[in-house]
Each structure stands twice: as structure tokens, then as C-alpha cells.
């Protein structure tokens, strides 16, 4: 019973729930601010994403006549809940270790697919042709990047498992503990292809500029989100903020969980790593590139990240 309560608290308060939401939105605020500064603008206040969410709470929700109302209104809720649970699965070294019953890499991979699926369902339920275009693009993109992600996860799991004398282990706590004991995978040449593949993967997964093809506002008018307004749109914004926290947190847990003991030190180191991953992998990438076409992105993912991921898996199994 007590560990059910612990899991519930993890999902609702820390590191899921309130904390992940506030942290994700704050990250978005920093991202927009830094982007503005790099373009020598003043930029919005740091709390802008919070203002946006509150604003959306005051707006009316409209359901298009062509939409399936139930699916249209409730799918974003599924995405938010999935991301809240996912945030509770990701360990933060010396601060938070997920309960052994839930802290599993495979579960996390499944949960990470849900926002994409939610966008696809929402797009098609809205009954708008732009939503349908967004649907097909999201699907193509997911097919392209989910493959490398699974291979990366397998490489990490096998590396850890073989190091611990078994075959593969998918427990996130074990993965973190193994790297604490034997050095982070980031400094392990055998894992470098996997690290590189992950660096290609995470900008695509959080949906920023070169890869925000399903929601491109200049071509398909925000695609699946086109018909959404008011509080329901806020749910989508919340979902993507949470997803950012989960994906970056996953990257840290998989490749560079090293941190000093003690809650404060561990948390500060985690914050620094999150900030670096976000500024380099999201803000800088977003500002320096133009949007790809869907066919370019598809081919790109099937070429580099997939090759790297396959290579990493092969190297890990052989070495």
C-alpha cells in the first residue's frame, strides 16, 4: 500500500505532476527568451508559457461540426496523463528513483509513443483536411524515429545487462546504478553511436523546427491543432511541455546520470544537464535550421540515426 501511495505522489507531485509541468513550462519560457536574445530581441517574459496556459483557460472551446465530439475533446487528456506517468518513471540520480514496479525502460518507450498517437487521433477526429495532413505526416515521422529509439534503448539495456553479468536489463534504476558504478555511457566509446543517434532523435521527438512537419503553421496551419481552442488547446501545450521534460530526462538517465550524492547536489547537476541539452539540442537547432520536407525528414531518419543505432547495437553485442 505504501508504495502505491509513493507512486501516486510521484505521478502527481514530483517528479511528475506539478513539478514536471512547472519545469516544462519554465523550460519553454527560457527557450523562447534565449531564442529572442540570440536574434537580438528582448523576448517574452520568462513566465510567458504560464500566461499562455492561463489565457487559454478563459477562452471558449469550439467543436467543429465535422468532428467526433467525444474523441475530439478527450484524447488530449490521455496524452497528458500518459506523460505525467512517464515523468514519474524517469530517475533523477541521487534525488529520485522510480518504484521498481514501474521504472522500466520498455514501459517508458510505450508511453513516449502516446503523444504522437494522440496528435494523430486528434487530427483525424477534428474532421479538418489540415488535421488529416498532420495525421499522415505525424505517422510517417513516428515510423521513422521510433525505430532508432528502440534500438538505442536495446543497446543501453544490453550493455548494462552484460555488464551486470546477465543479458539485457530494462530497469531504469539498474541502468543508472550501473553507470554510477562503472562510469557514464557518454564516456564509453562503445556507446558513442547510440549517443549520436539519440542526439538526432530527441529534437524530432519534442517536435521543434526542422522536424515540426506535422504542425507546421505556415503550411498546414498547425495541422492537428488547427481546430482546437481554449482549455483543450492548453492540454496540448501542457502535453508537449511534459514530453520535453520526459525526453530530456530519459537522455540523461540513459547516457549521463553521473551526479554527486545528496539531494541538492544531485538536483543541481540534473538542472545543469537539462539546461545544456535544451539550449544545444533544442534552442540552437530550432534557430539555425529551416523546416524539412516530410520526405527529407523520413529519409534522413532512415539513414543516419537508424544506421548509428544499428551500429551501436552491433558494437554493444560484439564487444
Amino acid at each position: 500500500m505504501s508504495n502505491q501511495i509513493a507512486i501516486l505522489l510521484a505521478v502527481l507531485l514530483f517528479p511528475g505532476g506539478v513539478f514536471a509541468l512547472a519545469f516544462g513550462l519554465a523550460m519553454k519560457g527560457v527557450d523562447r527568451r534565449v531564442a529572442a536574445r540570440l536574434q537580438s530581441r528582448v523576448g517574452p517574459p520568462l513566465l510567458q508559457p504560464f500566461f499562455d496556459i492561463i489565457k487559454l483557460g478563459f477562452k471558449r472551446t469550439m467543436v467543429p461540426a465535422a468532428a467526433n465530439e467525444t474523441v475530439f475533446l478527450y484524447t488530449p487528456l490521455v496524452g497528458v496523463v500518459a506523460m505525467l506517468v512517464a515523468a514519474a518513471l524517469v530517475p533523477i540520480t541521487s534525488v529520485y528513483a522510480p518504484d521498481a514496479a514501474i521504472g522500466n525502460l520498455l514501459v517508458l518507450l510505450y508511453l513516449l509513443m502516446i503523444p504522437g498517437i494522440v496528435l494523430m487521433i486528434a487530427g483525424s477526429a477534428s474532421g479538418s483536411p489540415y488535421g488529416a495532413i498532420g495525421f499522415s505526416r505525424e505517422m510517417a515521422l513516428m515510423i521513422a524515429y521510433e525505430g532508432p529509439l528502440v534500438l538505442i534503448a536495446a543497446a543501453v539495456a544490453i550493455r548494462t545487462g552484460m555488464g551486470m553479468g546477465g543479458w539485457a536489463t530494462f530497469s531504469l534504476n539498474d541502468i543508472v546504478a550501473y553507470q554510477q558504478a562503472h562510469g557514464s555511457f557518454l564516456f564509453d566509446p562503445v556507446m558513442w553511436p547510440a549517443v549520436a543517434a539519440f542526439c538526432f532523435f530527441y529534437p524530432a521527438n519534442v517536435g521543434i523546427v526542422p522536424f515540426d512537419i506535422p504542425e507546421a503553421e505556415t503550411e498546414v496551419l498547425e495541422g492537428p491543432l488547427l481546430e482546437y481552442s481554449g482549455p483543450v488547446l492548453a492540454l496540448f501545450k501542457i502535453m508537449s511541455a511534459l514530453k520535453k521534460v520526459v525526453v530530456l530526462g530519459l537522455g540523461i538517465a540513459l547516457f549521463f546520470p553521473a551526479a554527486p550524492a545528496g539531494i541538492v547536489g544531485g538536483f543541481l547537476v540534473w538542472l545543469v544537464k537539462m539546461a545544456v541539452m535544451m539550449l544545444v539540442g533544442i534552442t540552437a537547432v530550432r534557430l539555425s535550421m529551416g523546416r524539412m520536407r516530410i520526405d527529407q525528414a523520413f529519409v534522413f531518419f532512415l539513414k543516419w540515426p537508424l544506421l548509428l543505432a544499428v551500429a551501436s547495437l552491433a558494437v554493444v553485442v560484439v564487444v
Binding site: 523562447r32 529572442a36 530581441r41 528582448v42 523576448g43 517574452p44 517574459p45 510567458q48 500566461f51 499562455d52 469550439m62 503553421e217 505556415t218 496551419l221 498547425e222 491543432l225 488547427l226 481546430e227 482546437y228 481552442s229 488547446l233
Partner: peptide, 13 residues
Amino acid sequence: ERLGCQYCGSPKH
């Protein structure tokens, strides 16, 4: 953008 303004692609936003 410093006033919080943002252009949006969809009239519903």
C-alpha cells in the same frame, strides 16, 4: 513578442 504577442496560424487560437 515581449508583450507576449504571438502570431498564430489558426483562427481558433
